[in-house]
Design a protein around this nucleic acid. Structure first.
Lengths: 132, 132
DNA sequence: AGTATTTATTTAGCTAGGTAAATAAATTTA
DNA sequence: TAAATTTATTTACCTAGCTAAATAAATACT
């Protein structure tokens, strides 16, 4: 196994686990947070807009939104085009997002803190240069 | 979301999907292959040795081994310590592994090919330097 | 020796990704 | 306009990670 792949897969698992750990205090999983952040940044979105933006398949988003709706983080509204559902953040979500974002920023800072600013830039550049 | 995290998560998903695609011809999933490779490299191992080596929790390995056993890739043998199960590659697996390894090497080469040798080294170094 | 603790594996159940196929609404085409 | 195709979402089911708790064997303790 190419050591780059190995390192990338391991790091991915490690970071996801840490992120989930840190998000426990807000009763969220990392993927749920990703969707909330996406909606916060872009405003109301259809399911299709969300999964295309996050580069994930539709059923993953349907499932995640169903749970987020049940937990009161988002609402599904009918669009003008009656095939589509428009997802919006709830008032509760809007209220809580600043604290969650602060948690995330601190976490990211800590994780990336072992690299200098140049190294961070380098790493990002190299990841993006890899095929795909 | 820190762009490094975003890039890393996206790349991880992309590479896993590609790897699964490439492994279809051998009727394997990427995680199954990881375990076969691990056994090929280290010889017979207990479940605990496998999950510690792969840095994954025990139940993931139990499940994967159960499937690999049902498919004829591995066998579970009782150890001297009767709590532990020793996992060995089947003859069929030994026979097929060279072809699979060739597929994997070609795939890895292709994926990593957009980077120069120095860039690959750099990327690995930076990934490993990140916390965790 | 008998009890308590540790260790290896498994089971149950959760999130999160994937594909394939069903359904319903909108759009295109004959 | 009626039929065919496309598009948005959902459902069903697969792998793959996780935690918590059950079970069984080995080890440590009194």
């Amino acid at each position: 196994m190419n050591p780059i792949f190995h390192a990338l897969f391991q790091k991915n698992r490690y970071l996801t686990n840490c992120l989930n750990e840190v998000l426990k205090q807000h009763h969220l999983y990392s993927s749920q947070w990703t969707i909330l952040y996406c909606l916060h940044k872009n405003g109301p979105m259809t399911l299709t807009q969300i999964w295309k933006y996050l580069n994930v398949e539709a059923p993953s988003i349907t499932r995640a939104i169903t749970r987020l709706e049940a937990l009161g983080w988002v609402q599904r509204l009918d669009g003008e085009d009656k095939r589509e559902k428009i997802v919006t953040l709830s008032a509760q979500a809007e209220e809580r997002l600043p604290a969650i974002t602060a948690t995330i920023l601190a976490f990211e800072e800590e994780m990336v803190g072992s690299l200098t600013a140049e190294e961070q830039e380098q790493l990002l550049k190299l990841l993006e240069k890899m095929k795909g």
